[in-house]
Amino acid sequence: MILFPNAKINLGLDILRKRPDGYHDIETVMVPVPWCDVLEIVPAKGSETTLTVSGRKVECPMEKNLVMKAYRALEAEVSLPPVDIYLRKIIPDGAGLGGGSSDASFTLLALNELFSLGYNREELARIASTLGADCPFFIYNTPMLCTGTGTDMEPVELDLKGHSILIVKPQVSVPTAAAYSHT
């Protein structure tokens, strides 16, 4: 199965307050954009699940990659056979585009379909929320007003026809933790 996990942009981002749990309450509108990674999941050649990443360099061990975390999170709920996962990274990191979150959520969607698990979107969003605040958005992948830590979502009517979105990614990256530390 081959999927194309897409990026997202935030139309406005209001960081309201730091929460006692260390996270922040926010208010933003997240919108999917057609800048995509490539994700392929196939039955494993061996007896273990593997992840092969190509394209943009990803600086983390396999088990810390959100794609593997998504596999493990679903595996904790239901028995899964081993798979080989191939991820071609195109979406840049450190830009707030949600590439890793999208990859993780699309992994959940793919596994659900590939193995006919029968999870609905709400159930997949619940699992995705354990992986990261942006992850549930990509389960629905439609414009959403996001509040709380970003996981409380409400669909918004948004028509961007006649408008263009230009995304420019400079060489500098801003880690999410650093961006939020100034509130």
Rank of each mutant, 00 (worst) to 15 (best):
L145S: 05
K45R: 14
K64F: 10
D159P: 03
L3D: 11
A44S: 15
L74V: 09
L124H: 02
K57Y: 15
I26Y: 00
P175N: 07
A110M: 09
T130M: 09
L97T: 00
N141K: 14
T52V: 14
F106P: 04
N112T: 10
E122V: 05
S101M: 06
N65K: 04
G12W: 14
Y140W: 15
A70S: 12
V168P: 00
E123V: 00
Y71A: 06
A177I: 13
D21F: 09
V156W: 08
E59N: 14
A44F: 12
A179F: 15
H182G: 13
R17W: 02
G98D: 03
S102C: 07
E154W: 05
A177H: 08
T49C: 14
E113L: 13
V31N: 07
S173D: 12
I91W: 01
Y71R: 13
T176R: 12
A110T: 12
Y119E: 03
L108M: 07
L97E: 01
G150L: 04
M68N: 06
H163P: 01
S54V: 12
C60N: 14
Q171F: 05
I127R: 00
H24F: 11
L66G: 03
F106L: 07
G12V: 00
K169M: 04
D93E: 13
A95Y: 10
L166C: 05
L97S: 01
L114V: 12
A125W: 10
A125L: 08
N120R: 08
V78E: 14
A44D: 13
K69D: 05
S164A: 09
L74C: 08
